[in-house]
Amino acid sequence: MALALEIKGLRKVYGNGFEALKGIDLEVKQGDFFALLGPNGAGKSTTIGIVSSLVKKTAGEVRIFGHSLDSDIAAAKRQIGLVPQEFNFSNFESVWDIVVNQAGYYGLSRGVAAERAEKYLKKLGLWDKRHGASRMLSGGMKRRLMIARALVHEPRLLILDEPTAGVDIELRRSMWAFLTEINRSGTTIILTTHYLEEAESLCRNIAIIDAGNIVENTSMKALLRQLQKEVFILDVRDSLSADISIPGFDTRFVDEHTLELVLKKGTSLNEVFAALNSSELVVSSMRNKANRLEELFVSLLNPK
């Protein structure tokens, strides 16, 4: 499959001597929903900054759908839509002007720009706000405005740098649904986020960057297979005693109707059910404790 993004030997040394990227290689396939994760200061935003040409690279090569940032920058830029971490639009312009002007910067005629602006502002629930000044929008609306602006020229690669930071859960889920729809329609998406469950539920492939190096680059499924254990939360119908134990499993009493159970790699759920039956516990519901990826993330960054 063709590559949406190809990075080879990318290095960045800032003016103060800080080496933010130490020669990373990265490939993102066309149509992928890709997570780029890492702790603060790991090099995620620098990578995105270089790809979107807001940051100058020190060395290395970047290709976007085959277009080199060095030799074919205009074609490369045209493929990208960027949703940055910080709000970066004029506070004094209207929502409509911000989106339509951005289309103009990509050479789209006023008619096409207006059509696209209407389409994306409606999809992102900003249509009623189109005549208002952008500074009057709520934080979540401002994030959605940046997504509409990034999509107005219909890029093939959408890069989102922590798009749901500071967004409430309801809005976050509606943004997830929207991004999934955009991805299904063929747009490649690269996402950085601190919400690991967001990456887990949305992304098919993942790279973890730490201190300027890629420490993991694989599919989400392969990564999650590395889990040595999973924790399930059991809601129990009858009251539990604090010293409850289930033979063969580590458990933790949470409250009199809730129990955590640790499932080691290689153990099947059937064994869990059998043990629950023999303990005569009636389980009314069972769910995976979130943050599976978080556990892996922490273990990859702290290999001890």
Binding site: S52, L54, K77, F87, N88, F89, N91, Y106, G107
Partner: peptide, 11 residues
């Protein structure tokens, strides 16, 4: 206000 980035990312 950093909206110069709108221009810098464009082709």
């Amino acid at each position: 206000q950093r909206f110069v980035e709108e221009i810098l990312v464009s082709p």
